[in-house]
């Protein structure tokens, strides 16, 4: 609820329209590309450039306003609520893919294997199919080196205890370094803040690099691709969207790091740091879910 101080209301914003233009250009370009139109990639690059310029501009505007003390406590609360509800929407987005994994593993794959009322269907349609996990389905879907659809393909599922376990340790450590940086901020220890953020960002990008290596292994050595039936689909969709979110989180943290080197943030006023840290912990928790449900089980 409001207190009796004057309100802060920004006027005449140009960045939101530019952000929208960038997003739409990018997506229209991507759609054109998928339809095989030659203008697609150009549009995507133009949209991306607009979007990056917008991010730089809008971030500069906001951090300038924040540092000049224009935001009162009420604005700070609005921002925090905004970030919390945004993270809630992200949780729901990941819930879709976790739900998909649950549904296919526990319901639809067993049904294909003749469980429940599906016995006759299985006998008629897929008599030789055995419902086990991982699976690439009754037809054994896969793709060959040229990207063409193959049937009866073999693939090797991703193990948990190699790179994925290392990545788990990396992300957990990055959560610790992030909190260490926060303690530095609160204790007005600028050096600790910057070192902690550098470590967090570095660990984040290391995670992404390892993940890229893992994908490369999967595609070249293990026959595991997006086209490897439902296992490949859920594996790459879940880990792929997670990796994408790690990138976003690392970029946000990089902006916070850059601002920290410029002397931004005070112990009592550092919303951007908090938001980035919340996001980072969210990405961390999603990974723990992935490690258990995608890799381990």
């Amino acid at each position: 609820m409001s207190t009796n101080v004057a309100y802060y209301i920004p006027h005449k914003a140009t960045w939101p329209v530019i952000a929208t233009a960038g997003l739409v250009t990018m997506l229209a370009g991507f759609a054109n590309y998928l339809n095989g139109s030659s203008i697609g990639p150009t549009l995507m690059v133009v949209g991306l450039v607009i979007f990056i310029v917008m991010l730089a501009g809008w971030f500069t505007l906001q951090s300038g306003e924040s540092e000049s003390g224009m935001y009162n406590t009420q604005v700070g609360i609005s921002y925090r609520m905004g970030m919390m509800w945004f993270i809630f929407s992200e949780i729901m987005f990941f819930a879709v893919f976790f739900g998909t994994l649950y549904y296919t593993r526990n319901l639809s794959v067993p049904w294909l294997g003749g469980e429940g009322t599906g016995a006759a269907t299985k006998e008629l349609l897929w008599p030789t199919f055995e419902a086990t996990w991982p699976t690439n389905g009754p037809k054994g879907l896969g793709v060959d080196a040229s990207g063409a659809r193959t049937f009866g393909a073999e693939f090797e599922p991703m193990g948990a205890w190699g790179l994925p376990f290392l990545n788990t340790l990396i992300l957990l450590t990055s959560g610790v370094t992030c909190t260490w940086a926060h303690h530095g901020l609160l204790a007005k220890n600028r050096d600790q803040l910057i070192k902690g953020l550098i470590a967090t960002v570095a660990l984040g990008f290391t995670f992404v690099a390892f993940q890229a290596f893992e994908y490369h292994e999967a595609y070249t050595e293990m026959g595991l691709t997006l086209g490897s039936g439902i296992y490949g689909s859920t594996f790459f969709m879940l880990t792929g969207f997670h990796g994408f979110h790690v990138c976003i989180g690392a970029i946000i943290l990089s902006v916070v790091l850059f601002r920290s080197t410029r002397g931004h943030f005070k112990p009592e006023n550092h919303f951007a740091f908090e938001a980035a840290a919340w996001y980072w912990h969210f990405v961390d928790v999603v990974w723990l879910g992935l490690f258990v449900f995608v890799y381990l089980m």
């Binding site: 296919t104 639809s108 389905g137 009754p138 039936g229 439902i230 689909s233």
Partner: peptide
């Protein structure tokens, strides 16, 4: 839907172990 159409996934395709009812 997009990845099923353009990137070869089989979320909604029984041949790959998926399910349109999902």
């Amino acid at each position: 839907l997009l990845t099923d159409k353009f990137f070869g996934t089989s979320f909604f395709d029984a041949a790959g172990g998926g399910d349109p009812i999902l």
